[in-house]
Nucleic acid binder design. Structure first.
Length: 315
RNA sequence: CCUGACCAGGAGACC
C-alpha cells in the first residue's frame, strides 16, 4: 500500500492522473484498497494543476468508499479554493470542516496570510497573524516566512526584520526560505551589501545556500548593475555544485543587457542554448529592450525573430 | 522499527 502510495504521489505531482488511476486499479486487483494517502495525493495533484472540480468530486466519493477525509485533505482543498481565487467558497468550505480541527491548524492561517500577501494586503495579513496568536495558536516557520515575504514584496524592510526578531524570540528557528525572504527585502531596496551580510550570517548558522538563494543574490546584484558581484555569486554557486537554471541565466542576461554589455549577454544566451536550456520570453525580453533603447531596430527585430523561431510567443 | 499525502522563497518593459 505504501509503495503504491509513493508511486501514485509521484504521478500526481507530474499531473499524470491516468497513470495514477492505472496504479490504483492494479492495487485493487491485488485486493488492496486506496487509503487516505492515495486520495490526498490525487486531490492535491488536481488542485495544483487547476482541476479543483475533480478534486472536489474525489472528496465526495472517498467518503462513500469508506475513507474519511482528514485534516490534510481539508487543508489541501481549502488551499485549492483560495489559489483559484475562490476565497468565499473556500471559507464556506472551511465552515463545514470544523470536525477535522482545521481551525486549529497553522496551515490554515498560512494559506490565508499567503493569499492576502499575494494581493499586497499585508495589513490584513498582519491582523490574521495577531488573531492567530490571540487564539492561542503558535505561528510556525511557514507562517513567519510567508508574512516576511509579504513585507519584503511591499518594500517594508523594517516590518520584515521586526517580525524576524519576534520569530527568534519565540524560539522558531529560521530556515533557508526565511533568510531568502529577508535578503529579498534588502535586495528590493538595492541594499545588496546588507544582503551579503545576511548571506554570510545564514551560512554561519549552518544553513546551505540553495539555487533560489543564489539566484536572489544574483538578481539583486544585477538590478544594482553590479555584474562583478553577480558573476562572483554565479561562480560560487557552481563551485558549490549547484546548477543555475533558466531563471538564474535570465537574471544574468538581463543584468548584462542593462549594463550595456551585449557581447556578454549574447555569450550567455548562446552558451545556455548549447547547454540545452529552454529560453522563454523572460530570457529574450531584456535583449530586445536593450536594442530598442539603443535605437538598434535591426538587432531588436533579429532577436524577436530568433525568439519566435524557437516557438516562443511574446507576452 | 523504518517508509507515502497538505501551507511559505528567485528573473523581464511601462507606470
Amino acid at each position: 500500500n505504501v509503495s503504491y502510495g509513493i508511486l501514485v504521489h509521484g504521478y500526481c505531482c507530474l499531473g499524470e492522473f491516468s497513470k495514477a488511476y492505472d496504479l490504483l486499479e492494479e492495487m485493487m486487483q491485488n485486493s488492496m484498497h486506496p487509503d487516505v494517502f492515495h486520495y490526498s495525493s490525487l486531490i492535491s495533484g488536481y488542485c495544483k494543476f487547476g482541476f479543483l472540480k475533480e478534486a472536489l468530486k474525489l472528496y465526495e466519493t472517498m467518503g462513500t468508499n469508506g475513507v474519511m477525509p482528514n485534516l490534510v485533505i481539508c487543508i489541501t482543498l481549502f488551499d485549492g479554493f483560495v489559489k483559484e481565487g475562490l476565497v468565499n467558497e473556500g471559507f464556506e468550505f472551511l465552515d463545514k470542516q470544523h470536525a477535522c480541527g482545521i481551525m486549529g491548524s497553522s496551515f490554515t492561517y498560512a494559506i490565508v496570510i499567503n493569499c492576502l500577501c499575494k494581493e499586497n494586503k499585508t495589513k490584513k495579513a498582519w491582523e490574521i497573524f495577531k488573531l492567530m496568536e490571540a487564539r492561542g495558536l503558535l505561528p510556525d516557520i511557514v507562517v513567519y516566512s510567508t508574512l516576511i515575504n509579504g513585507f519584503a514584496k511591499e518594500y517594508r524592510i523594517k516590518e520584515a526584520f521586526t517580525l524576524f526578531g519576534r520569530m527568534m524570540k519565540h524560539g522558531v528557528v529560521p530556515n533557508i526560505i526565511t533568510y531568502t525572504n529577508l535578503i529579498n527585502s534588502l535586495c528590493n531596496y538595492g541594499r545588496t551589501h546588507d544582503a551579503f551580510h545576511w548571506f554570510k550570517e545564514l551560512t554561519m548558522q549552518g544553513l546551505i545556500p540553495d539555487k533560489i538563494l543564489y539566484t536572489s543574490m544574483i538578481s539583486g546584484f544585477c538590478r544594482q548593475r553590479d555584474m562583478q558581484m553577480a558573476w562572483k555569486f554565479y561562480q560560487m554557486m557552481e563551485e558549490n555544485g549547484l546548477l543555475p537554471d533558466i531563471v538564474t541565466w535570465s537574471c544574468l542576461i538581463d543584468g548584462f543587457c542593462k549594463s550595456h554589455k551585449m557581447d556578454k549577454a549574447h555569450f550567455l544566451e548562446d552558451k545556455i542554448t548549447r547547454m540545452g536550456f529552454v529560453p522563454n520570453v523572460k530570457t529574450y525580453t531584456p535583449l530586445i529592450i536593450e536594442y530598442c533603447n539603443k535605437g538598434d531596430w535591426d538587432q531588436a527585430m533579429k532577436m524577436y525573430g530568433e525568439m519566435k523561431k524557437k516557438g516562443i510567443s511574446p507576452d
